[in-house]
Nucleic acid binder design. Structure first.
Length: 509
RNA sequence: GCCGCGUUGGUCAAGGGGUUAAGACGCCUCCCUUUCACGGAGGAAUCACGGGUUCGAUUCCCGUACGUGGUACCA
């Protein structure tokens, strides 16, 4: 590698929610940039007027913030190569397209959408279901290659709508080295004359990436594998514009696939199979369609990032849990898998489980607070933290704290009587009455409670097992929860005593 | 159709001419725990197929199959 400073960019198009694959692409970009002490740039590809969705740009930046993948330069933050929004760079692109026309590497095309469609209809056949606008077709179309110069000038002078297309050479072998795939080769005859500048004056992706990457001095460009087939267009553009020496190194990242069937993972699959696909909640302002995100579902950003990082990459060791810092340290493009990976939601949940399990109680309590508010419960942070500590090992999501610990906030609404009633007897009534009475003399810790409980059980000659379960049911209502004396200790003396009484009334004799 | 890319258990994957072909998720059994979970010990399950090259191919080469992406004035 040369001694140029690494500059890497991520360029989402604001057309909807931020997809898993998108986040992973940002992640890899980010890791690489940070690893090389380079710049991570966020550029917005808002050139697609028809699909541009208001609010999507803000959404994307918030997703990145949540994930901790903050850009160094972006439309909001500015930077030495601003503007970073393609629409604001619009005047830039035309001159390069014109330059290509002058040098004979591109041409004006005046074909209307209808003309293009009729050409495709005419040429369509079973052997050629998708006819291209290429070196053979272009001679029959209305463009500056097929028409007399005077006609072209007249059309131009009249302000006739037109696009600028690249003139793909015939039969040239083009190859480049991809950082994940190694050498990739194409024959230019197979590539069509892609539009570079649209009739509305906006560049297509092809022109824009090349121009922006050059102007912004991008050194490495990582994008999804779906871009691999258009690499030859970009390669040629770098060459024709005379910038070949500055061309960034490319890496085409594998796709994230549907867990079941085949194909790229889409939002629809998430809806169908019951898991999120977008980083955060997203409501399409046009259709009002709402999609749940990983963040709102209770995923921790660290877990989300970790899970994404090892989907298609690993460091060769058995390690699976990586912090962002570790990822920056250990990530390497040559250990990125070439093949697409099917998304496994179970594994994603497992990662979140791991992170929740090892998260400190105070943070968990804070994250859980919204659920408490929703449930109409008020509790002091320290109490919530204790509970988080008690139940976190069985939670897959922050929200699960409620499911596993609701009884800490409200006394049982009913009891699993079937589990306790058949074996109930007067001795047990007596036991609980006595023990409850002794509580004043017992320090209220789990260990002390257990000791005094055991002592009394021995004295009364009742097996611990026959007492512990009923006690648990008195406190929680059912056969679940953390160790029973931990529950009692957390609940406190008064509450414990009151629940014993309530339990006794419900299923005692 | 054409072009590109790919193919190790159900999934994520390590390995890369001679291995008992790691590990993780999920599943199953057992232990711990008189709840659940955590933790621990085991188990079932894999090199797409056919040809080469080689003393020897999961590994290298070529085909085939399959998958996937592209084939838009979308990115």
């Amino acid at each position: 590698m040369d001694n140029k400073k690494v500059r890497v960019r991520f360029a989402p198009s604001p057309t909807g929610g931020l997809h898993l694959g998108g986040v992973r692409t940002v992640l890899f970009n980010y890791l690489f940039a940070k690893q090389h002490n380079g710049d991570f740039i966020l550029r917005i590809e808002d050139t697609d007027q028809t699909r541009y969705v208001p609010g999507a740009e803000e959404y994307i930046t918030e997703c990145l913030r949540w994930c901790g993948l903050n850009p160094d330069e972006s439309p909001e933050l500015g930077g030495p190569y601003a503007p970073y929004r393609q629409s604001e760079r619009k005047p830039l692109y035309r001159q390069y397209a014109e330059q290509l026309v002058k040098s004979g590497h591109a041409y004006y095309a005046f074909d209307t959408p209808e003309e293009l469609e009729s050409m495709r209809e005419r040429l369509k056949s079973p052997e050629n279901p998708a006819p291209q606008y290429n070196h053979v077709v272009r001679t029959q179309m209305r463009n500056s290659l097929a028409m007399p110069e005077a006609d072209v000038q007249a059309l131009l002078a009249a302000g006739t709508p037109h696009v600028i297309r690249i003139k793909m050479p015939v039969g040239e072998e083009l190859s480049f080295t991809d950082m994940v795939r190694g050498n990739v080769t194409f024959n230019t005859s197979q590539v069509d004359d892609k539009v570079l500048l649209k009739a509305d004056g906006m560049p297509t992706y092809h022109l824009a990436v090349v121009v922006d990457d050059y102007l912004m001095k991008i050194t490495h460009a990582f994008r999804g594998e779906e871009w691999l087939p258009s690499a030859p267009v970009h390669l040629l553009l770098w060459k024709y514009l005379g910038w070949e020496a500055d061309m960034p190194q490319w890496a085409h990242l594998p796709l994230i696939l549907k867990p079941d069937g085949n194909g790229k993972l889409s939002k629809r699959d998430g809806d169908r199979l019951g898991f999120p696909v977008y980083a955060m909640n997203w409501t399409d302002p046009r259709s009002n369609e709402f999609t749940r995100g990983f963040r709102e579902l209770g995923f921790l950003p660290e877990a989300f990032i970790n899970m994404l990082a090892v989907l298609g990459w690993n460091d060769g060791s058995e390690q699976e849990i990586f912090s962002l810092e570790e990822l920056i340290q250990k990530f390497s493009m040559d250990r990125v898998h070439k093949a697409g990976a099917k998304f496994d939601y179970e594994k994603a949940k497992w990662f979140n489980h791991q992170y929740i399990h090892h998260k400190d109680n105070e943070t968990l309590a804070a994250l859980f607070q919204p659920v408490l508010v929703e449930k109409g419960v008020t509790a002091v942070p320290a109490y919530v933290a204790t509970i988080a500590g008690l139940v976190k090992e069985r939670c897959y999501f922050v929200n699960d704290i409620w499911e596993h610990g609701f009884f800490f906030f409200q006394s049982p609404a009913g009891y699993d009587e079937a589990a306790v009633k058949p074996k109930w007897n007067a001795d047990k009534d007596a036991f609980f009455a006595v023990w409850s009475g002794q509580l004043d003399n017992t320090p209220f810790t789990a260990a002390e409670l257990e000791a005094s409980f055991k002592a009394l059980a021995t004295e009364k000659n009742i097996k611990m097992g026959e007492l512990q379960l009923p006690f648990r049911i008195m406190l929680t209502g059912g056969k679940f929860g953390p160790p029973v004396f931990d529950i009692a200790a957390t609940l406190g003396k008064d509450e414990t005593r009151s629940r014993i009484a309530k339990g006794l009334a419900a299923f005692g004799q």
